[in-house]
Simulated scan of single mutants.
Amino acid sequence: MESWIAVIVAVIAAAASFVAALLASRQALRARKSAEQLDSRAHRIARIDRQSEELREAYLRFATSLGSYAQDGHLGQVRAALEVLAACSGSTEALRGQVIGQAKLLSMSGSQGVRVGVEPSMIREAYMEAQELLADKRQAEATD
């Protein structure tokens, strides 16, 4: 009879060990998935931050080129800055539209030998909207 008790105790202990191993494995999988989700979110937020910084630097380059255009009348720097601004990954359709319109105006004025003033206000508004959109995306990622 005692041998049966020893066998039953051994079977119960083996079953308990097996169940504990299954639960530990399941918990490890959950922890890994959770860590991957956090890492993925951090990467998405970092990408949005890079897009915002790229856009900020391109706008700064554009604004700086306006100063040299006002002093020297060199269209090349302004056109280059506009191209960079339009090519930014954080640029919106509205910003690209404003940039392309201004670039066309500058190109026509340059080919005709007429100096045209650059109107930055519409580009500034579109730039600010693009930055707000990126900030909203970042906030949505951070709170998800």
Rank of each mutant, 00 (worst) to 15 (best):
E119G: 02
Q27C: 00
S89Q: 14
G97L: 02
V11N: 02
V116Y: 08
Q98C: 12
S89V: 08
A10V: 07
R26S: 11
Q37M: 15
M122W: 04
Q102I: 05
V118Q: 02
L29W: 08
S40E: 13
R96L: 04
L22E: 09
V116D: 07
A81R: 02
A63H: 09
A21S: 12
D49K: 15
L105P: 01
S121L: 14
Q139E: 15
V99I: 08
R96A: 08
Q51R: 11
V19P: 04
S3T: 13
A20S: 11
L29V: 08
L82V: 05
Q37V: 11
E125W: 01
L75H: 11
S109V: 04
L38M: 11
T92Q: 04
S91Y: 05
A10E: 04
R61E: 08
G101W: 01
K104W: 04
A16C: 08
A86M: 03
I48G: 05
G110P: 05
L82R: 04
F62L: 06
V7R: 14
G97M: 06
V7Y: 11
R50T: 10
E83K: 10
E53Y: 08
L75W: 10
R47Y: 07
P120D: 02
A28E: 15
A14D: 00
R30C: 06
R44Q: 14
V7T: 12
S68C: 04
T64Q: 13
V84G: 03
A81F: 00
E53P: 01
A63Q: 09
G101F: 02
E125H: 09
W4L: 14
E141P: 05
V11R: 03
R26W: 12
K137I: 03
E57Q: 13
I45R: 08
A126S: 14
S17C: 12
I5K: 13
D39L: 15
A58P: 01
A20Y: 09
V19Q: 02
C88H: 03
K104E: 14
K137M: 12
G73D: 06
L29M: 09
Y69C: 02
R138E: 07
R79S: 14
A15Q: 03
L105Q: 08
I45P: 01
S111L: 14
A86G: 09
S91N: 01
A87S: 15
S65F: 01
E83A: 15
Q98P: 01
E93I: 08
R61A: 14
T64W: 01
L66C: 02
R96K: 13
L134Y: 03
V9A: 15
S25E: 11
Q98V: 05
R115F: 07
A24L: 12
R96V: 06
A135C: 05
A70C: 00
I100S: 10
R138F: 04
D136P: 03
Q27H: 10
H74T: 09
A63D: 13
A70Q: 12
A87F: 03
E132Q: 15
R115N: 05
A135L: 10
A87P: 00
A81L: 05
Q77F: 12
Q112N: 12
R44N: 06
E93C: 00
S91E: 03
R56V: 02
F18E: 00
L82K: 00
I8F: 10
Q98N: 06
Q112A: 13
I5A: 13
E93H: 07
